[in-house]
Design a protein around this nucleic acid. Structure first.
Length: 711
DNA sequence: GAGTTTGAAACT
DNA sequence: CAGTTTCAAACTC
């Protein structure tokens, strides 16, 4: 019997019923200002119920109808029940929604004025007074520690609070800043986007913020929402987006036009305020990031450069889709080119003029219509490109019964959690990129943006497409197939799957390994043996460092990569060594960290995750070219040129480690793995200055000792 | 635009 | 963990 369409979604998430949230989203506003070109519109535009409904219920799907219905209802009694029906006509549990009432709207407008005031220089007053004054009440404290509740309240009950707090002018903002102040102490950034959204009054769309949940999550430690590595943090995809930007720059420059100066101005102001906020540990990134990304785009695209001019606090938005405003998601999504659209562009440059034209037409066509078209998944499963990418669906999507919208934030978050429970790396970047790519490498194989050493994290499993069509994830991502792929008859133009597994094993330069492999009869045996050997350890040992900030994450990754170490002791030793090495690798203390901190939450990462993270493609193939010369010269014996453990190799590791490694047949592989992890994890934008980060780590260590951090 | 193919994701 | 089903994108016509 055929299952009722979409029923699984509800089965899975009985508690995850769509929870329409009425707070209009800033992101939508950004989206609209971009098109209209003026952010001031939002500031000046008084509360507009229609807008709210339209924005919160926007979408090409049935929600629009729902919105209309709700709006009508709203006109009657100020409340609306949104009945969301799925395809089968089955009525979803409705969510009763309290809409903002007129007085509340006015107050919210006032609050937004305060918000703006904060942005223009008074933020620290609020924060400081709270910090110094110790104004945490028990209730507030509870709220701070109850993201779930807070999240609901921040939206569902926001209107009530608006009224209730109407005569407490600063409370709204201050209360939310408490979050930040508290975090200053605990370094637990808000676990929900709504926490930060709450900084923005309801009539200001926070969709930019909420839509970039991944952005904020990137700034979070592992304690917070676990899912973030979305393409948001997907450096490769971001790189593709950079490519997209090149294509879309004209569009954007036209759409933004003279308004860019306003955005710049606001961005500048925000930058200043962010620095203040950041000094208190308040995550201002999301909001700022959106603005900044606008600036970045404009600046760099006009210069024809893909590089970003960092503020010094935030790394190039180019590195992460999450920093791309919702509007720009739309723009990008017009060519969302999840993976290889950019490759199409690259391809354009290489093709004959005639084919170029044809391809260009194709690309443009795709740019105009690209987004998901989900019908049954409600955009809450990985089938959905948007969901999988960690972004909300846009109006440009053609999906039906879409719940991947800011107004269903909790549903989305819950589903992400469910998805991550199933596969902790579900939202991790599908393509891992060598962080050390030189421009030359970037140009290699005709790929402008796609480093030659990029590999699909998991590898494809193509049977019929020969990896030469977009059915193939590797091809789609514009990367070559690797040993991690299980494809058959690979003909990936970006790089065929290496012929034998054994050849790869030689790279480990481990005599014992080679010997071991020589005993294996088939490639599959090699795979199994190698994998089991490589990844026999688990991350349980590492549970204590899951919430550490990048440098420690690096260590975590490095240790994790040392899968062949089977004893905790060894891991500890290695950790010690790696800690030293890490300082070499990244003087700044910011090691490239590709996966979201939350994604690396030890609780979620078991053997499987480790296995996946350290998949062959992730590990083996890139290793050679992933290692920078400095490392090769110092502690990397794992080049082709060094077939075995050379006594002449100069190791930078402490003698005790070396002695251990000399005893260990997998020492070199370990090192290689470690280096690889350290190097290849895509850049994770340092969200705070190093000094702050270090202080944070220090503080965090104290605060979180004995805690796995993740909840 | 409809129908088919394909392979990932989800499910059993 | 393997086999099956579901799903949506990619592709073809």
């Amino acid at each position: 019997m055929r299952r009722v369409a979409g029923s699984d979604v509800y089965r899975q998430s009985d508690d995850i019923q769509p929870k329409p949230q009425l707070m209009p989203c800033f992101q939508n506003e950004i989206q609209s200002y971009s098109s209209s070109g003026c952010i001031d519109e939002h500031l000046a535009d008084p509360f507009n119920g229609d807008n709210i409904m339209n924005s919160s219920m926007s979408g090409p799907t049935s929600h629009k109808e729902t919105a209309t219905e709700a709006d009508d209802t709203n006109a009657g009694d100020g409340k609306a029940k949104v009945m969301v029906s799925d395809q089968t006509g089955e009525e979803l549990p409705s969510a009763s929604m309290n809409f903002f009432e007129v007085t509340a709207r006015e107050k919210e407008t006032e609050r937004f004025g305060e918000f703006l005031q904060c942005l223009s220089g008074n933020v620290d007053d609020h924060v400081e007074s709270d910090i110094l004054g110790g104004t945490f009440s028990g209730e507030q404290h509870h709220e701070l520690f109850s993201p779930q509740r807070y999240s609901k309240e921040s939206l569902g009950s926001h209107s009530k609070e608006s009224v209730k707090e109407a005569d407490q002018p600063h409370r709204g903002i201050r209360r939310h800043l408490h979050f930040g102040t508290h975090e200053t102490a605990s370094l637990c950034l808000p676990a929900r986007q709504t926490d930060f959204e709450s900084l923005v009054p309801p009539h200001v769309e926070t969709r930019t913020i909420s839509g970039s949940w991944q952005a904020r999550n990137c700034s979070q430690t592992a304690k917070s929402w676990p899912s973030f590595s979305p393409p948001a943090c997907e450096s490769v995809r971001a790189a593709q987006n950079c490519g997209n930007r090149a294509v879309n720059s004209i569009v954007r420059s036209e759409s933004m036009g003279s308004e860019s100066s306003k955005v710049k101005k606001l961005g500048s102001n925000l930058h200043q305020q962010e620095e203040k906020l950041m000094s208190y540990g308040i995550p201002f990134l999301s909001f700022y990031g959106e603005i900044y990304s606008h600036l970045g785009y404009e600046q760099n695209e006009s210069q024809g450069s893909f590089s970003y001019q960092s503020s010094g606090i935030i790394q190039p938005p180019c590195d992460s889709l999450h920093l791309i405003p919702y509007e720009q998601q739309a723009t990008l999504c017009k060519g969302t080119m999840p993976s290889s659209e950019y490759a199409d562009i690259v391809e354009l440059n290489q093709m004959s003029p005639e084919r170029n034209r044809k391809k260009a037409k194709y690309t443009i066509k795709r740019e105009g219509c690209r987004r998901c078209k989900c019908k049954r998944s409600r955009c809450l499963k990985l089938y959905c490109e948007c969901f999988a990418a960690g972004i909300y669906c846009l109006d440009t999507c053609s999906c039906e019964n879409c719940f991947n919208k800011p107004e269903y934030e909790e549903t989305v978050l819950d589903m992400r959690q469910v998805t991550e429970t199933r596969n902790p790396l579900a939202f991790a970047p599908k393509v891992v990129t060598n962080a050390t790519n030189s421009p030359a490498n970037m140009m290699e194989k005709g790929s402008l943006m796609k480093p030659s050493s990029s590999r699909h994290k998991k590898g494809c499993n193509c049977k019929k497409s020969k990896c030469s069509k977009k059915y193939c994830e590797c091809f789609q991502a514009g990367v070559g197939c690797c040993n991690g792929c299980r494809c058959e008859g690979c003909y990936n133009p970006y790089g065929k799957k290496p012929e034998t597994i054994y050849r790869r094993s030689e790279r480990w330069n481990n005599p014992s390994q080679e010997q071991q492999h020589s005993l294996l009869e088939s490639p599959s045996d090699c795979i199994k043996a190698e994998r089991s050997n490589q990844f026999s350890s688990t991350w349980e040992e590492l549970a204590g460092i899951g919430h550490l900030t990048p440098p420690s994450h690096c260590l975590l990754g490095a240790v994790a990569s040392s899968g062949s170490l089977n004893t905790t002791d060894c891991s500890k030793k290695l950790a010690g060594q790696l800690q030293q090495e890490s300082s070499v690798l990244s003087p700044s203390g910011y090691l490239n960290w590709n996966h979201s901190p939350s994604s690396l939450s030890p609780k979620l990462y078991g053997r499987e995750a480790l296995h996946e993270l350290c998949s062959d493609s992730f590990f083996c193939d890139i290793m050679e070219d992933a290692t920078p010369e400095t490392l090769k010269n110092t502690c990397t014996p794992s080049t082709e040129g060094v077939k075995s453990c050379s006594p002449n190799q100069k190791w930078v590791s402490p003698p005790k480690i070396r002695s251990h490694e000399l005893r260990s047949g997998s020492s070199q592989r370990l090192r290689s793995g470690c280096k690889f992890i350290l190097q290849d994890l895509p850049s994770f934008p340092p969200l705070t200055p190093y000094s702050k980060s270090q202080a944070a780590i220090h503080q965090n260590d104290g605060d979180h000792k004995g805690s796995t951090g993740y909840q």
